Amino acid sequence: MSPARTLLGADGLRPVSPRLIPARYLGGLIPDLIALALAVACVVLAVRLDWWWLGLVALVPLLVVAPGLILTPRRVRALGYLDRDEDLVVASGIMFRSVTGTPYGRVQSVEIHEGPIERRFGIARISYSTASTDVDGSIPGLPREEAERLRELLTTRGIERMQSL
C-alpha cells in the first residue's frame, strides 16, 4: 500500500481532523445551555403550578439538542475530501450523502477561515467559489497546515487550468 493511500479513509477520501468534534461541541455550548435552562424552567413551573402539560413542553428543547450532541461525532467522520489530478472531491452527510467534484479550472477564489474556537483547536475551514454560483464549497476541520497546502494547491492548479482553457 502506498504512503499516500494510508492517509485515506475507507471510502478513499481524506478525513477531516477529529479535533472538529470538540470544536463543534464548544461552539454549540451556549445554545445547548439555553435549551437546557428552558427545559429546567418548564419542569420547575410544571411542578410549582401543577401544570402537567408544561412538563411535556420541557421535552421540546431536549429533543432539539439531543440529536446534535449524539450525531456530531458521526457527522464529522462523514466529512472527507480528495485532491485528485483534475478536481477536488468533497463528501459530507450521513443519511443524505453529498459528493461534489469541482474542476480546478472553475475555482475563482479560495479563502481560509478561522474563528477563536478553531484557532484554539488548531483547525481551519477552507472555502472556495467557482464560476458557477451553485458549486461553491467548503471543507471544515482541516489542520491549519493542510488548509494552507490545499489553498495553495487550489490556487495554483486553478490558475494553470484556467490558462489552458
Rank of each mutant, 00 (worst) to 15 (best):
S127T: 02
E148T: 07
G80W: 00
A91Q: 09
V43P: 14
P143F: 03
A39N: 13
V89Q: 07
L69R: 12
R120S: 09
A23E: 02
L8E: 08
S17N: 00
D32V: 07
G9R: 12
L71A: 14
P140M: 02
V110N: 02
V135R: 10
A147V: 03
S109E: 15
L38C: 15
E111D: 15
W53D: 10
M162I: 07
A91T: 04
T133W: 13
S98I: 02
A35S: 14
D50T: 08
V135W: 09
P61Q: 11
L26V: 03
G68R: 14
A58T: 09
P140G: 02
L54R: 08
L8H: 05
V57Y: 11
L69F: 10
S127I: 06
I139S: 00
E111S: 12
V110C: 06
I123Q: 08
V65L: 15
Y104M: 01
V107P: 09
V40L: 15
S127P: 07
E86Q: 10
P61Y: 10
S164M: 12
L26S: 01
L45T: 04
E86I: 01
Y81D: 06
L142K: 01
R151W: 06
L88W: 01
S17P: 06
I117M: 05
E148W: 06
S17E: 01
A131S: 09
G93N: 04
L142Q: 00
S132M: 10
R14T: 01
L153Y: 00
I30V: 14
G12F: 01
A131G: 13
L69N: 11
E160M: 11
G105R: 10
G12H: 00
R157M: 11
L7S: 05
R14V: 05
R151F: 03
V90D: 02
G137P: 06
E86T: 01
T6D: 13
D136Q: 09
L59Y: 09
C42D: 13
I117H: 04
P73A: 08
A4G: 04
A58G: 13
A78K: 06
P22Q: 07
S109D: 15
P73Y: 07
W51K: 14
V64Q: 14
Y25E: 04
T6H: 14
L82G: 04
R161I: 00
A4C: 03
L56Q: 10
M1Y: 05
D11W: 02
